[in-house]
């Protein structure tokens, strides 16, 4: 853990900005993703990968189905948070993907078995949507994390039971789900989700070369193709 943190510090300044640029690209696909995933297509996409990955994807689908059956959304949060925190090891993008910043789809995350903070947040976000949590209650949040006495660039998933309520934080550094007030180590900077975006663009992105211009868009296009 200490190794990760050192590296995370070293690139903190660089990371926030490109990520914010990428935010500009949250168009379209989010709305399509908001209604969960296509299980058959997801299985089909996984079939091209290793048996271990296939097992992991199967487990993810089962977990989401199981979570969807839970009456209390807090229980769903716990199931999803636990699943990814346990299965995925934290490693830098430069090690996993050979790039300074890479936003992986849940399928890629499970295939590699490793990822960094935004990969956790993305996988949890998509799984919760699949488990029937409304999109309006979820936000991806850029935070400044005070970790071991040093500020870090970090991303977490926030759950708002009501629009004005205090959110619950799903994090990979601290695997326990806590209300925001109990996380003094985190300072929120900016949040977003897939809400309020027009639906017309979703269908046209496939042929649009501009999709490839940002990490975020790239991720969403890949995820959609995989069945999310």
């Amino acid at each position: 853990m200490s190794r990760f943190v050192t590296r995370a510090v070293s690139r903190a300044g660089r990371r926030i900005r490109p990520a914010l640029w990428a935010l500009a690209w949250t168009a379209g696909l989010w709305s399509a993703l908001a209604w969960g995933w296509d299980q058959d297509r997801l299985t089909e996409s996984a079939a091209k990968l290793s048996p271990r990955t296939q097992a992991a994807v199967k487990a993810m689908i089962q977990m989401a189905d199981h979570a969807a059956a839970m009456p209390d959304e807090r229980d769903r949060l716990a199931a999803v948070n636990g699943f990814f925190n346990q299965r995925v090891a934290f490693r830098d993008d430069i090690e996993v993907w050979g790039q300074i910043d890479y936003w992986a789809t849940p399928l890629e995350l499970l295939d590699k078995g490793a990822g960094d903070c935004e990969d956790y947040a993305i996988a949890k976000y998509m799984s919760l949507l699949a488990a029937g949590v409304p999109q309006s209650r979820l936000r991806m949040v850029y935070v400044r994390a005070q970790f071991q006495g040093r500020p870090q660039a970090h991303m977490v998933l926030a759950y708002y039971a009501q629009p004005e309520a205090e959110p619950l934080i799903l994090d990979n550094i601290n695997p326990e789900i806590r209300p925001a007030s109990l996380r003094p180590d985190l300072t929120p900077v900016f949040s977003f989700n897939g809400e309020g975006l027009w639906s017309g663009v979703g269908a046209t992105t496939a042929g649009n070369p501009l999709v490839r211009l940002s990490l975020w868009r790239d991720l969403l296009a890949k995820a959609k193709a995989e069945g999310f």
């Binding site: 935010l23 168009a27 936000r139 949040v141 926030a158 708002y160 629009p163 004005e164 205090e166 959110p167 925001a180 007030s181 300072t187 929120p188 900016f190 949040s191 977003f192 989700n193 809400e195 309020g196 975006l197 027009w198 017309g200 663009v201």
Partner: peptide, 20 residues
């Protein structure tokens, strides 16, 4: 067919709506 730009606004952990 130009879609409006939409982004979420927050105040710390508090969500304060969105900008269109």
């Amino acid at each position: 067919d130009v879609a409006p730009g939409v982004a979420k606004v927050s105040d710390g952990w508090k969500a304060v709506g969105e900008i269109e």
